[in-house]
Simulated assay, not measured.
Amino acid sequence: MNTIDYFKLQAKNLHRDFKTKTPVFDAVIKDYLYAYKSKYFDIEMIVSDFNIDEENFSLMNAQHIIAKIANFDSWAALLKASSLELAKLLYDYQDRIDLIGWQFYIADAQAMNETKLDAEIQIDIFKQVVVEENIFDTVIESYLLKHYD
Rank of each mutant, 00 (worst) to 15 (best):
I43A: 01
D17I: 04
I97M: 02
D5Q: 12
H64R: 15
A81Y: 04
L144V: 02
K127L: 06
D49H: 08
K88C: 03
W75E: 14
H64Y: 11
L86N: 05
K37S: 07
L59F: 02
D5I: 12
W102M: 00
K19F: 05
A107Y: 15
I65G: 11
K39F: 06
N51V: 13
K21R: 06
Y34S: 05
D92Q: 04
S74C: 04
Q122P: 02
M45A: 07
Y6M: 05
V129F: 07
E114T: 10
K30M: 10
Y40H: 06
L86W: 05
Q128D: 13
S82V: 14
K88A: 04
S38P: 00
E133R: 12
W75F: 15
V139D: 04
T138E: 03
K12C: 11
N51R: 06
N113K: 09
A81M: 01
Y32V: 13
A27R: 13
K116V: 09
A77V: 08
E85Y: 06
A109M: 09
N113S: 09
K37C: 06
E114I: 09
T20V: 00
M45R: 13
I140L: 00
A35P: 12
Y40S: 11
P23T: 08
F50G: 10
A111R: 15
I46Y: 07
K88T: 00
Q103C: 05
D95I: 15
D42S: 07
D49Y: 09
I46V: 10
T3H: 02
E44C: 09
D31A: 12
A35F: 12
D137M: 10
E120M: 12
K8T: 14
D108S: 11
E114C: 13
D124G: 15
D5Y: 14
L117E: 15
K8N: 08
Y93A: 00
L84K: 05
A27W: 09
K37G: 10
Q128V: 15
F136S: 00
V28Y: 14
D42M: 11
K12T: 09
A11R: 07
D108F: 13
Q122M: 00
D42L: 13
A109I: 04
K12A: 09
D137Q: 15
D149H: 06
D137L: 13
N61D: 05
D118K: 11
A62R: 10
Q128N: 15
K146Q: 08
Q103V: 07
V24T: 14
K37D: 03
E120N: 11
T138D: 03
Q10I: 03
D92S: 06
L145S: 06
N113P: 10
T20Y: 00
A109F: 03
H64M: 14
K116W: 14
D5K: 14
I69Q: 02
F50H: 08
V130E: 01
H147Q: 12
L86G: 05
V131Q: 01
H15M: 08
K30F: 09
D98C: 03
T115S: 12
N56F: 13
R96T: 12
